[in-house]
Write a protein that binds this DNA or RNA. Sequence first.
DNA 1: CCAATAGATAGTTTTTTTCTATGCGTTACA
DNA 2: TGTAACGCATAGAAAAAAACTATCTATTGG
Lengths: 297, 297
Amino acid sequence: MRYTRLRSFHAVASAGGFNAAAAAFNISQPTLTAQVGALEDEYGVELFVRRGRRRELSDAGRHLLAITTRLFAEEDEALAFLEQSRELKTGRLSISAVGPFHVTEMLAAFNQAYPGIGLAVKLGNSTEVLDDLFDYKCDVAVLAYIDEDDRLLTIPYRRHPVAVFVRRDHRFATRDSIRLAELEGEPMIVRERGSTTRRAFEEALAVTGAKPRLMMEIGSREAIREAVIHGLGISYVSEAEFVPDQDLKLVRIEEAEVYTYAHVVVLKQRESSRIIKAFLDIVHRARNALDGRGGKP
Amino acid sequence: MRYTRLRSFHAVASAGGFNAAAAAFNISQPTLTAQVGALEDEYGVELFVRRGRRRELSDAGRHLLAITTRLFAEEDEALAFLEQSRELKTGRLSISAVGPFHVTEMLAAFNQAYPGIGLAVKLGNSTEVLDDLFDYKCDVAVLAYIDEDDRLLTIPYRRHPVAVFVRRDHRFATRDSIRLAELEGEPMIVRERGSTTRRAFEEALAVTGAKPRLMMEIGSREAIREAVIHGLGISYVSEAEFVPDQDLKLVRIEEAEVYTYAHVVVLKQRESSRIIKAFLDIVHRARNALDGRGGKP
DNA sequence: CCAATAGATAGTTTTTTTCTATGCGTTACA
DNA sequence: TGTAACGCATAGAAAAAAACTATCTATTGG
């Protein structure tokens, strides 16, 4: 109401007449006459002076035009911002993940598709990651295994085989792959309890029945690498996480039954969020691109 | 539409919630929900993030709020300007007048009543003044005599007696007043043809039948004063225009039939203009205040 | 677990906005 | 000096929008 009147005034004032404004802004001239008239009546102010058959801006009108010019510039800015938001040219997506190795690929794909979106990644264990998700501290979580929780929407993203790695001089070092059974009695350095990789590995071992000798439990991938390099034992790692080293050799597991999984998890509630939808879309596309390369669970 | 949505968004964003905004801005909560929802749908942007039972500003929402804050500040400014215009606290009034002497009084009264209104005075002869009026170059004209023109609204403002003035050593200098008949053969310096004062004076002379000796015609009041001081003759002037001098003496005319008039003239078309109405009102009041003092025609 | 709270949804009514058709006064031009 | 074109005003009707009430759902705090 006030707005419409101001807008009509602005149109007439900047177009230089009622008919001109009507033509320029695709509204009828009587509408403009009515709106401007209402504005003038409401405030008892002469915005236009009748001069023959035309109406020209009065001093008050000129002053008001200066204000409305700024006003509608701000409106344009608001709409421009909304437009660019529509196209996801701005915004931020925060991700909590259990490990950096699963997410970098997704981040790269997403960033390529939406270069304007800021990305924030926070790492933590699975409990922390889930808490972030439920506390709205992140938009997307990347987890290894999933709780069945109907507040969550879970998308299996990909699986990474777990492999054994040994020092160059170990008897496995010349092998391309081994069987789990061969690990019987083998001195082994393992991850902390709760590690996704350890869990997957031990489940597979339990199936096989093989029992390595647990040398030590270390809560850091890097520290385990050092321990292996120093000959304290052999260990395992998700293939994607393995950092090559001249003293180390990665040996696959023949059965290939040991995998860590990456699931993309979001709150069902937020599934319809544009930015989250965009991310999930990228994830699906990446999964499909992986098909046939055996990356899928 | 866009505006209402932005306003609803702004209300919710600045009030910190839908219900809070509904209470603060006296609109119903469903209205706000609908408007904000429409804005989000239209641009596919999440302005608020659902967090439990509340909705909190998203990054995009925060950005938009910054813009809408400026937007509505401009709107407030526009409305404030219109409000103060309603009370005639701003604006400008331009006056064209045939002489400065008639208008100063009005200007003073008007300025006292509406100190915020800028005043512009332009002087000219009666033709120029009327042209300004018809060309909308001025809002109000002050003229001596009037054409009957039904495009014009004319208000008699006041009349000023015309008096004779002479040098101290003139035989009239000891008199308080003279009769027009005494001017027979008297050397006289007169204004240019077209001068209101000359016209009034000569009309009165014609009635009387007296014939002064026209010494010279000078198109400037100041130059005439100098001429009288130098003893070239006597002259006349509207009493209101007379500037006292130790060498000059003003002598009234007994019949007091010689007057110049001041009429306030506006275009009928523009009579309803607030500022013009306000000025005419001041003029009427000043006229009434003059009643009983004999200032009226 | 219940009551209170924040927000969403459905359906309706009121208000606003906008249109078409037409009238009136000005201006320009033949 | 008519007369056509132009610029705006007015009337009445139609369309769109904004607003409401009532009700529902989900979350949270005691």
